[in-house]
């Protein structure tokens, strides 16, 4: 765990120092800790652009991984992730309403700022969350909830397709870019906001560690050991919804982190104990996104790749490798 913490610090420094203008790590050090900048432009780049982006990468990686781990354990399904409860699709739905429907009906033609997108995304994620919760309240079986979540996601994607079909080229491009995900472009206010929501979303997790461990044996065993599975389900929906909802709202849908990172943590730490897995997933997620983002910067060039493309390029082979190499049901 200590080693992983070191890796996190190194990834962070690497992430901050790489970009279209390369800033050496020693310069970053001097600047951040002693306030000595060789040029003022470096300070500008670092403080206003790279630091918030690196923090967003950490928050997003942590949030998605932890919500993914919760869902995988709760649904006892190795392929569950933030997409599964329809939360990511819900956020996409909110943004699609803002950008696409906005362009069709003319209520948000050009004035689309990050706050508006974040609010729309949060509302969309919240809407799906409420719907899923209503279902969760009625059905007792977690598999049913899983299927319903996937169906909500499918239905919402269909609505987005319809909106995309009727909207103009400008809006379509805006939405497409949002859906590719981006860690940058957020100001400090938004970073603080995101951090606040992530902290609130982590709160239920801390109090559910014992319950998640018991849940590894299945719902019946967990409840025979005095775990209130109904309450845990609400905590899980709340926490996973907040974490992945806020990340998707601010950064767009970021693929694979939610699914792949918990497995990475299980493999690296070789344990099923959530006292280890939660911090381990958080660290792995943060490191993965920092590195993906650094890679996406195409060091030395002014261009950068959308984060979703980078995580998918790394995540897809990882998940395929996991599926082929390891017996999921045995290792899960």
């Amino acid at each position: 765990m200590l080693g992983a913490g070191m890796v996190l610090v190194i990834s962070f420094l690497l992430n901050v120092s790489l970009g279209s203008v390369s800033i050496s790590i020693s310069q970053v050090f001097e600047g951040l800790f002693f306030g000595e900048w060789s040029r003022d432009s470096l300070r500008q780049i670092l403080v206003n652009y790279r630091l918030p982006k690196a923090l967003v990468a950490i928050l997003a990686g942590l949030g998605l991984s932890i919500s993914g781990l919760q869902m995988q354990t709760f649904f006892r399904n190795p392929l569950a992730g933030p997409y599964v409860l329809g939360i990511s699709s819900g956020a996409g739905f909110g943004v699609a309403i803002l950008i696409l429907a906005g362009s069709i009906f003319g209520f948000a033609s050009h004035a689309v700022n990050p706050w508006a997108i974040a609010i729309a995304g949060t509302l969309g994620a919240g809407l799906i969350l409420v719907l899923v919760s209503l279902v969760a309240w009625r059905v007792k079986d977690s598999m049913t909830l899983l299927i319903v979540g996937v169906m909500f996601g499918a239905a919402v994607s269909a609505i987005i397709s319809v909106l995309a079909y009727f909207s103009g080229a400008e809006a379509l491009k805006l939405y497409t870019i949002w859906s590719m995900g981006s860690l940058g472009g957020l100001g400090w206010e938004q970073v603080w906001m995101m951090m606040g929501v992530v902290l609130v979303g982590l709160f239920p997790v801390v109090f559910s560690i014992r319950a998640f461990n018991a849940l590894l044996l299945g719902e019946s065993y967990a409840s025979s050991m005095g775990v209130n599975t109904t309450r845990l389900r609400w905590w899980m929906i709340l926490s996973a919804g907040l974490l992945s909802g806020v990340v998707t709202a601010f950064c767009g849908p970021v693929a694979f982190v939610g699914i792949a990172v918990p497995h990475m943590a299980r493999i690296i730490w070789k344990t099923a104990d959530h006292r280890v897995l939660f911090p381990a997933s958080a660290l792995c997620g943060a490191v993965l996104l920092l590195l993906c983002d650094a890679l996406g910067q195409l060091p030395g060039s002014a261009q950068s790749l959308p984060i979703n493309a980078v995580t998918s390029l790394i995540g897809a082979p990882l998940v395929i490798g996991l599926v082929l190499k390891r017996n999921f049901s045995k290792d899960f």
Binding site: R76, L216, G218, S220, Y221, S224, T271, S329, K330, F332
Partner: peptide, 15 residues
């Protein structure tokens, strides 16, 4: 008061 052993399979092979 009550401890049980059920028929449902336990999947957590990593434990």
């Amino acid at each position: 008061q009550l401890a049980v052993v059920l028929t449902e399979p336990v999947l957590a092979g990593n434990m």
